[in-house]
Structure formats: C-alpha cells, structure tokens
Nucleic acid binder design. Sequence first.
DNA 1: TTTTGAGTTGTTCGA
DNA 2: GTCGAACAACTCAAA
Length: 452
Amino acid sequence: MAAPTIMWFRRDLRLADNVALCAAAAEGGPVVPLYVIDPVFAKTGAARQNFLAANLRALGASLGDRLVIRYGDPVTEVVRLAAEVGARTVHATTDYGPYGSRRDRDVAAALTTTGRHLSFVGSPYAVTPGSVMKGDGSPYAVFTPFSRAWQAVGWDEPIDAADVNWLGGTDVPSAGYPAVPPCDAQLPAAGEHAAHDRLDAFLAGPLATYDTDRDRPGVDGTSGLSAYLRFGVLHPRQILIHLGGEHAHERFRAELAWRDFYADVLYHQPRTAWENLRRDMDRLPVDTDAEARARFETWTRGGTGYPIVDAGMRQLLAIGWMHNRVRMIVASFLVKDLHLPWQWGARHFMRHLVDGDLASNNHGWQWAAGTGTDAAPYFRVFNPTSQSERYDPDGTYIRRWVPELANVADGDVHAPWMSRRGQPLGYPPPIVDHAAERAEALRRLSLLRRHD
DNA sequence: TTTTGAGTTGTTCGA
DNA sequence: GTCGAACAACTCAAA
C-alpha cells in the first residue's frame, strides 16, 4: 500500500478538471484533502469570508466530510499535517500571484528540510502565466496582441474528476469549518454543482446577447461566474470549451483573456499589484488629506449624490459584487472626480468583492486611473450622468440599489438634483461638480507632459 | 534599425 | 437631435 499523500486545496475548490488532484490520485495511496485558513482570512470582508466558507462546506460535502481544515501559517500547518499522516508528497495547483508564490516557496523549503516534497502543477488560468511571449521572448504589455497569441497557444480540454481513495475526516482531525461574521448578502450559491448550473444558465440565455447586454447593469446580462473563477470552483477551461465563433462568444472569450492577461502582467511585474505600472504617473498629484479621506468615506457608503455611483457602491456592500460597467464608473469617479489614489479604491474592492482577484482588480483600477497597461487617452474621463443615461436608461439599476429614487420619474433618476419640474426630490446634491473636477483632472494630467 | 499602424469600454463642441 | 472632429504625446508590436 502506497503512503498517503496530501492534496492542498487553495484556489481550486473543485474535484472536476483539477490536474493537481489527478496528480495526487496517481500516487496510488490514500489522499488527504487539506485547506489551510490563513490568519489574514479574518480581516477580509464578511461577504468574502462567507462565500469562501460556503464553498469549503460544499467541497467538504462532496468529499464525504473528509476535508481537513487547519488554521494558521501554511508553513507550519502543511508540514505538521504531512508529518501526522506520514505523507511524502503534497500536491497543489501552482499559485502565480505575488503572495501565493512567496508562501509556496517557503512551504516547499520547509517540507524539503523534513524530507518531503511539494509538487505543483496547473494554474487557475486557461494559459499559464509566463507562457504567452512575443517573438523576441519578452512578455506582452498590450492586450490585443496578447489575446491573439493567447488564443494561438490555446488550452487543453477539461478532464474528469479523478477516482480517489480519500482519507481524512474522522481518520485525521480537522479543526472544522471557519466561524464567519453574519452576512445579509445574497451570495451566489456555493459549490461546483451550483457553479455548473450557473454556467449552463448563462450558456442557454445571456450569452447570445452578451456583447450588448453585458454593459447594462439593470439587465442580467453577465455570466455571474467571476466568484466561482476566483476560488477555482470553476476553471476557465470548463467555460471555454462551450464557446464558438459567434460575435457574442468572442466577446465573452475576450473577458477570459483579460483575466489571463492581467495575471500574466502581474506575474512578470509583481510590484504592479500596488504600484503604478507606468512610473511616470507617480508624479500625478493626488489628494490624501483629511478632506480627501472624508470624500473617500462618502464614496464607499454610496453618498456622492450621483445616483449611478451611489447605486454601485451600495450594491457592493449589499451583495459583495458590482456590475462591471458600474465598477468602471465608480473607479473613474474616485480617480478623476475625487482625485484620490486608485489604491484606496482597489483596497476597498478587494475587501468586499466576493470575486476580488488581485491581478484583475488592481490592474482594472490601473486602467481606470490611466496608470496601467492601456495607453489611456488622457481625456478619457467618464461622465457619471451620461454613462447612467446610456447604460441604465430607465433607471432600473439605480432604483434597485437607491430606494430613495425608486419612484422618481425616468427623466430625473440620473441627476435628481435638477428635477425637470423644478421640485426638490430630497436626494442629496452631488459632493463635487463633475465638469469642474473633469477640468481639474485634465489640468493635473497636463502637468506630466514632457515638452519642457 | 527604422517605420508604421494601433492602442477595451469617452466626452465635448460646433456645424 | 445627429455627426464628425478634436482632444497629447507616447509606447508597443510587428513588418
């Protein structure tokens, strides 16, 4: 009988199409499924904690309640469990992020000193970070050529769940599922089964009109799969296999390419998690004084006076998710209208989004701030009112998340401080004047011009 | 090496 | 109301 081996789950909370799990099963011995809860877990938002906990429970149930949960520093806990069960190897999916890769290096080193081995395979991406390169061997810095090369590299078809002789549960002590703070949010249903249900529903419905409906926050036009992808309940391969050549399908495939692109950029330049990719933008003046902090707080609770911005910020706190179009609007508002550091917004998003992914989130923020990969035209400043009129024309989205405006006339819902009939609508006036702040944003950007 | 075309998601102004 | 031009300069990717 072969010795037990450990399957260390991290961002791959699924049994199907899990190459690390297959590698563990191939060892031939019993497999102990492990999840280590890092102390930083308790510091993140309630919605994130709840969604992760629910997915751990779902994974545990699919393992016949054998999932072993441990709390603490992974370096200590993985080594300890390996010694406990007499495992020679630990299997895991490779983590390409700045924190995960550092942690894994430490765990691997600690295991090595006790004569054991940490074995990595796979990734949470369709194409492994670092494997899409230009002809000269350097990484891409622009999305469009990256996405062409990305598709040319391609990906494997999903594989079935391995046949595994699981160990754990009563045989190996587990510290139990994490206690999590109360959470009113209506979170996505947890677990692989629910994820595939959502995928099937998306493929059968919204996908056909994805290219237009994806931008309408009042319509259920997006995939709703981001949180599953974040925790690896679903792998992008399992989605890509269903996409064809239709325009709407290509549009959605491009979104998965963006996810891989930003992971690739962060892999090559880990410092860009929290620093400007474009270093020349370091000279852009931003506000960080007490008044700036007060404006930031107003932004986070959805009290800016711009209904589309307030709706988005309230949706985030209510359900741990925000529609992508609205993410861009509120991000542009924080950066271009309030002149705050994009890092403040990125940190708030990472804390509350159930799908918060460091690479996609922070590089998305850098896109909005014009500090990232996109050679952003300096004049690209979103107008929150015209964005609202264009993408939420009848105010469906605004009314859902800003109940004060539920019964306001269509024509007033986007800019309730100037009722067309001249009546007060009781909604607080905007904290800043967009036209004036747009001019201020352009002025600050002009300071960076080079023609000395 | 040099050149050329292009770069996710926008807004405003004036005809 | 619609439409096209203007809004900087720079960097990237590939020929």
